[in-house]
Write a protein that binds this DNA or RNA. Sequence first.
DNA 1: AAGTTAGTGCAACATTGTTGCAAAGTTTAA
DNA 2: TTAAACTTTGCAACAATGTTGCACTAACTT
Lengths: 137, 137
Amino acid sequence: MTNNEIEKKLESKKVKPTAMRTLVYKALADSGKTLSLADLEQRFEKVERSTIFRALKSFEDNFIVHTVNDGSGSVKYAVCDEDCTCNIHDLHVHFYCTRCGRTRCMKELPIPNIKLPDGYTYDNAQFVINGVCPRCD
Amino acid sequence: MTNNEIEKKLESKKVKPTAMRTLVYKALADSGKTLSLADLEQRFEKVERSTIFRALKSFEDNFIVHTVNDGSGSVKYAVCDEDCTCNIHDLHVHFYCTRCGRTRCMKELPIPNIKLPDGYTYDNAQFVINGVCPRCD
DNA sequence: AAGTTAGTGCAACATTGTTGCAAAGTTTAA
DNA sequence: TTAAACTTTGCAACAATGTTGCACTAACTT
Ligand SMILES: [Mn+2]
Ligand SMILES: [Mn+2]
Ligand SMILES: [Zn+2]
Ligand SMILES: [Zn+2]
């Protein structure tokens, strides 16, 4: 993904595309995976943890990335699809491989619709499946 | 739940019912909720964090309690049903209220069956729904 | 009783996530 | 064009959570 494309993307989501943000977004998008804050930190020695953290936060607040709580102890980040608004119908299942520690977006698997008891309202969900991925099997 | 019942329960799951473990189990069971390590710590000022931690760990390893990753930053613990072996068919949905921070076992909602792509095997899952509970609505 | 094993308390620690603040950079408006 | 206002970044500090090594004690075993 070119810097130009990234800048357009961020702008379209109302986030000013600074150099740092473009860098962070690019790293995440190019990886094609979910990455933790620590993972990103390692990808460029040079940039401050807090800067990456704040970039990710602004992405999250503006539906540019979504987070995954895979139970590994650190939150993972992944780029959202083009038209994602991170509402309950845009969500998908995530797969956490307990061998390699990689977490994958299963975009082909939307989170199934659940009928909650009366009185509950919801707007978000995390569905994480733990097991062994094809690479590790 | 009486101490005697708790001791029998722990023994039946191959965990020696020490004073501390009985205390921890009782606190969790009597609460009827999910509790974090910090929550439990507060319930009895006196007992060491690490002792509670290790008690919970031994419970978890022996299917006496299960954990919930509700994304709040701390793992929650809840007592398992009698016959639970914590395999994928024993699992249920959890509900995290973003107002009060309480996490509830929705035992009436089993985790739906998911057909993963070829090559994936799984043995565990977490399905956490975020929203507002009846108490907070 | 002596030896062995298991449990506990204490202290230390790594990791993760988060914030206050000042310096640097960018935008706005005079 | 310059000054003021606002935003972003780096740095440092910090809280919270989870985890471990180690020594002491308690409990079991023979
Ligand atoms: Mn995803
Ligand atoms: Mn539960
Ligand atoms: Zn794997
Ligand atoms: Zn609530």
